[in-house]
Design a protein around this nucleic acid. Structure first.
Lengths: 355, 355
DNA sequence: CTGAAAGCGCTTACAG
DNA sequence: CTGAAAGCGCTTACAG
């Protein structure tokens, strides 16, 4: 009986094989059992003799056999895969989030399909289609412009979806979001506390939820400090350095320049910073600068950037954990708000009156 | 005959359905044909009546039917998926590469499994296993410590693999690499041309191929300029800002400080820069600084960083294109070398003799 | 052009 | 505990 042969013999059997076994049946033949038993042994079912199960597993292992996920999921109706849609994986915030998602996915035996949707609507459609065809068990959508037209498509899919920092208010049930209003208020308060009164805001594109909320926090802090809001101090970029630089130029052109600028994100702060430096002014001596995100690089800037830390990785993990709960059929609270943390570095300084 | 009903009627039929069709058979029933014909119509086989095929497709479309990738790949033995292993997706270089991979994958109808292998060997094993189980058609490994122990596992998989900037020389057939030696030589020449003689090198960990090659390029440029190599000027970090900062401190502690530093990558340059600034010196007035990568952020630093641009995204695309060729069974050249491009910004300046 | 049939590699009642 | 059988949703010869 093959079962009683030594590992060495098993290897010999293997050596005779033209190629490594690709199905449970071949393992069954090697082990002298039915393929049902192999299946059971591999899945650690109690419905196999312990010893026999171990032998089977050893043989499978030595042969380097791997069960086909496709075949398995066809019958179990669980693919153990999830889809992650991002606008751009090259965005450092997104990359951090994906890293967190991947960590818990890997740990929990899930594989992740990554798809860049970019700004291309046709591509978004292809992405969703591919997720559907692969029968992903769930989806997380990150920092996306998901909205009006995208929502119904996703809803039709009948799989759990969690949104992370979604940029459009939508009727999706589950989302993980940074506490934008609170964090922005705190960041702006910090500037107020330093004596600034002319505080500008460089936002993202109008209409994005994060922008709206961060702007609201900024306004709230001004209001509670009794500082009247000056609309000329609120300008918009697009969340990237270039456009933020343009926005900064507008501020610099003002008769009454701001003494501090709160930026939608670190990338915007970077663009603003570049423009400030180019115009011969200095941060923080002439203008204080605050960002949002706390990208990996922000602490290494010169001066290191004061910013609101978003725990990107943890937010990703949290989104994935939530998704797994939904997949498991557990109901949960609708929205998860994650607090930001103000990190004070050297890009902000007390406002000194110029005589 | 169902086929002749208007879309409206089809919708009505659909409306009666409890849930959207999940298999070809259900479409077949709706269309009044065999499921074989549905399969053919959906695959645009010429073996179906044109009109009938169109009707079938319309019905499938209206129902939001999506063929099961698992079922399909079970029979075709092609999963139309590829696996991408990265050490860390949060590394901006890696993110850029993945973006390029994803672009062409998406375009060509492939889905990508993304896996972070990190530095955890157990996790690497899990990643490879999951790729095997999903029967990926190919794999690209990015900027990884792939080597000694990892190689045999991957080779056993019998699928095409392309390595991108792999950090260990290995027997894998296909790789996409930046032309490290040439690019580093050019970068160092630039410093020499500016009059620098005491030029330091802050490397990655010893033993990584990229580091070895970049160091070689640096050495070559010194040699051709007749500058004797001073071993105290070659120090090692780990490719991240923190360790590079430590390395920079060693250089700063030297009796004869360098007047220029060539760094393994932009992240290292960032760490070195931070340390230089903290010690009261200035870039480039006191010390010129050159990086490698040209990360998105590098042009926004103050001063903007002189560096070697790696076309990360194109390298990713190239790797994916190569992989697709391999999957298609085409043979190709073994190694693809991509030239780097020296981008001169303001972190480098002529060396002025201090009187 | 069309459909019935076999089979891809699994899992899981079902009957011993 | 064990194996034969059915079936997951497809594709593709095969015979009309």
């Amino acid at each position: 009986m093959v079962l009683n042969k030594s590992p060495l013999t098993t290897c010999a059997v293997l050596a005779e094989m033209p190629t490594k076994p690709t199905s449970i049946k071949e393992i069954a033949k090697l082990a002298g059992v039915s393929h049902s038993s192999v299946s059971r042994a591999l899945r650690h079912s109690p419905l196999v003799n312990r010893e026999k199960a171990e032998q089977i597993r050893r043989i499978a292992d030595e042969c380097g056999y791997r069960p086909s996920a496709a075949a398995r999921s066809l019958v179990t109706r669980r693919s153990h895969t999830i889809g992650v849609v991002v606008t751009s994986i090259a965005d450092p915030f997104v990359a951090g989030v994906v890293s967190g998602i991947e960590d818990v996915a890997n740990e929990r035996g899930y594989s992740v399909f990554l798809a860049n949707s970019g700004v291309d609507a046709a591509r978004e459609v292809r992405v969703v289609r591919s997720f559907e065809e692969h029968r992903v068990d769930g989806i997380v959508v990150t920092a996306s412009r998901v909205g009006a037209l995208y929502v119904p498509v996703l809803e039709q899919m009948q799989v759990p979806i969690v949104l992370l920092n979604n940029q459009h208010p939508s009727q999706f049930a589950y989302s993980v979001m940074i506490a934008n209003v609170e964090a922005s208020r705190e960041a702006t308060r910090h500037l107020v506390a330093l004596g600034h009164r002319r505080i500008a805001y460089i936002g993202d594109r109008l209409g994005y939820q994060s922008d709206t909320e961060r702007f609201a926090g900024y306004r709230a802090a001004l209001e509670e400090a009794g500082v009247e809001f000056d609309p000329t101090l609120a300008v918009h970029g697009d969340g990237k350095p270039e456009a933020a630089g343009e926005a900064m130029s507008k501020l610099l052109a003002l008769a009454l320049q701001p003494t501090a600028v709160f930026c939608y994100n670190d990338l915007s702060a970077l663009g603003a910073f570049r423009r400030i430096a180019d115009s011969g002014l200095r941060v923080p001596e002439d203008i204080s600068l605050v960002g949002f995100d706390d990208l990996y690089l922000s602490r290494y800037l010169d001066p290191p950037l004061t910013t609101v830390r978003q725990p990107m990785r943890q937010m990703g993990s949290l989104a994935m954990t939530t998704l797994l709960r939904l997949i498991a059929g557990e109901g949960l609270a609708q929205d998860i708000k994650v607090p930001g943390e103000l990190i004070i570095r050297r890009s902000t300084a007390p406002h000194e009156e110029h005589p």
